[in-house]
Amino acid sequence: MTTPNKTSPGAYPKQLERTGTVWETGSLAVWFLSSCRLGFIVDQLRVDNLETYWQSDGSQPHLVNVQFRRKTTVKTLCIYASYKSDESYTPSKISASVGNNFHTLQEIRPGKSVH
């Protein structure tokens, strides 16, 4: 998700997209999951419905790999996790890494830019 301007904290991404302050870029990428339970596939992760979700079915770490076909600048990453909805599968740690290929990945921290 890219953001040309500041966005209000906690604002729902689809609402911001309608205002023109963000542009959802996930459809420009290829999504891979490290594993999934039957019926809890990548489509469930990407659909515009907070009641659906991806559920992994394998050894940890559980990974979501998003690869863009060409160089793409992503300024904001939005992840919705609800402990109240699914406490047994809600992650206790989330990390994000960026790079030009698998071998150049660098973990990013909130508020820190990686060039």
Rank of each mutant, 00 (worst) to 15 (best):
N101W: 15
V64E: 10
G26Y: 00
G39N: 02
L38C: 08
R70Q: 05
S88D: 05
A96M: 07
V74R: 01
N65I: 02
A96R: 00
G39A: 05
D43C: 12
A11V: 06
L45M: 05
S85N: 14
G99W: 00
A81Y: 04
F68Q: 11
S82T: 12
F68W: 13
I108A: 02
T7L: 03
T3D: 08
L63W: 01
K93D: 12
I79W: 08
Q60W: 14
T3L: 12
F102E: 07
N5Q: 15
P110Q: 08
E107Y: 08
C78E: 04
V114Y: 15
Y12W: 14
H115V: 07
T7M: 02
W23Q: 04
V22T: 02
K93V: 06
T2D: 11
A29D: 05
K14S: 11
L33N: 01
H115W: 02
K71A: 12
T3N: 09
L38V: 11
F102M: 10
T21V: 09
A96S: 08
V22I: 03
N65V: 06
T21Q: 05
Q55C: 10
G26S: 01
K84H: 14
E24A: 07
T73V: 12
Y80K: 07
S27W: 00
R70P: 09
H103A: 08
V47T: 15
H62P: 04
A81T: 03
Q15E: 07
V22L: 06
E24N: 04
S88N: 05
E51W: 11
V98N: 07
P91D: 06
R70W: 03
S8T: 14
P4H: 02
P110K: 04
N100A: 10
K93F: 11
G111W: 10
L16A: 06
E51D: 12
S92G: 14
C78Y: 10
L50K: 09
